[in-house]
């Protein structure tokens, strides 16, 4: 039963949430930590609201007075009100991290951003007309957002067993899982490299490729979409 809910729950959620603005959901997904195990905090502890913009929004909508009386979890070390805090970047760092070595992971991601910046600034200087110059995206974080947006799949294939045969059944995908897959694919594409090329360099190229809607990751996404399209005949197995 619980297994069933795991499979259906997210889908239903996804269907409902298609009307709500996507960016809003994006923010909520990124901002709150997900605790896999019970924490020392009881349920009624609220997630911290650490961004100044969010706090201003709360004050505006008069919800702060409600929250003021409730206990709040402490923010994590990476949840800061810094100007250059970006939830997607901190999520990405967590995905790059191995064995809890966050310092190294952060360094690698920052180096990749630096490489992107250098490549883009060079392109900017090479461009001759102002129109071309204006087209070059110089902010590495914009490029990351674009790349992740471009490599997020819209459908997924679920293996479902019917009559002794496992069918690859296409189905909708939750926002959260598609984000996970996008980041995972980007990192897998990066790690598939020559031994002599370093991670930051390769990662920079992959991100630039994906932001440009080309490259390995986007191709992988399109392959999944194509397979979903081919397997549409099995779609009814999802509920039969």
């Amino acid at each position: 039963m619980s297994n069933f809910r795991y499979k259906v729950g997210p889908i239903a959620k996804c269907v409902f949430q298609t009307q709500s603005p996507r960016s809003n959901l994006w923010c909520t997904l990124m901002q709150y930590r997900f605790y896999p195990r019970p924490t020392s905090f009881p349920d009624y502890f609220q997630n911290p609201i650490f961004r100044k913009e969010d706090q201003a929004k709360l004050i505006e909508s008069n919800e702060l007075t409600k929250l003021a009386a409730l206990p709040v979890k402490p923010p994590a070390a990476y949840e800061t009100s810094s100007v250059y805090h970006d939830p997607l970047v901190s999520k990405l760092i967590n995905h790059v991290m191995k064995m809890g070595n966050k310092k190294l992971a952060r360094n690698l991601v920052e180096k990749a951003f630096e490489n992107i910046k250098r490549i883009q600034i060079e392109r900017y200087h090479l461009a001759t007309t102002p129109e071309e110059k204006a087209k070059v995206v110089l902010n590495p974080k914009d490029i990351l957002h674009k790349a992740v947006e471009n490599s997020k799949p819209l459908l997924q294939l679920l293996p479902i067993k019917r009559g002794g045969i496992t069918y690859q059944v296409p189905g909708p995908i939750t926002e959260k899982r598609s984000l996970f897959l996008a980041i995972k694919w980007l990192l897998e594409a990066t790690n598939d490299k020559e031994r002599t090329i370093h991670f930051p360099e390769q990662f920079a190229w992959e991100l630039l490729d994906a932001a440009n809607n080309t490259g390995k990751v986007v191709k992988r996404k399109q392959d999944i979409h194509r397979q979903c399209e081919a397997n549409r005949a099995y779609a009814h197995y999802r509920w039969q």
Binding site: S82, V83, Y84, K117, I121, Y124, L138, N139
Partner: peptide
């Protein structure tokens, strides 16, 4: 000017 730093003014303070 050299496009090395971007973002809002508060960045400098930080």
């Amino acid at each position: 000017d050299r496009l090395w730093l971007r973002g809002p003014r508060e960045t400098e303070g930080e």
